[in-house]
């Protein structure tokens, strides 16, 4: 009885040890995947804010163009 118990506990001990090693590996893997993911998200936010700035600049340009167009078309209306 005690013998089997002992054997059991030894085998459990060995299995636990192997499990620790495996878990160490899988944990670091998952952490790195998460870091990659995080990077992508940060990249996305950075891109978003840059795009927003760009968008704003374009809008301003567009409005200025419209303004110039209005100025020009009235001055030139005879020719169209």
């Amino acid at each position: 009885m005690s013998k089997t118990n002992m054997n059991n506990s030894v085998s459990v001990g060995i299995a636990v040890q192997a499990d620790w090693d495996n878990r160490h590996f899988s944990n670091s893997l998952s952490l790195n995947v998460r870091r990659l993911f995080e990077f992508l998200l940060q990249f996305e936010t950075a891109t978003k804010s840059k795009l927003a700035t760009l968008n704003e600049k374009l809008t301003v340009l567009e409005r200025q163009l419209e303004y110039l167009e209005a100025q020009f078309s009235t001055a030139n209306s005879g020719q169209y």
Binding site: S28, N32, R35, F43, S49, K50
Partner: peptide
């Protein structure tokens, strides 16, 4: 080397001045 490759990502500067 996964760890190295991932930590290399942190060398990128991603600017985002949103508070």
């Amino acid at each position: 080397p996964v760890g190295e490759a991932v930590s290399a990502l942190s060398t990128f500067t991603l600017e985002d001045d949103q508070p």
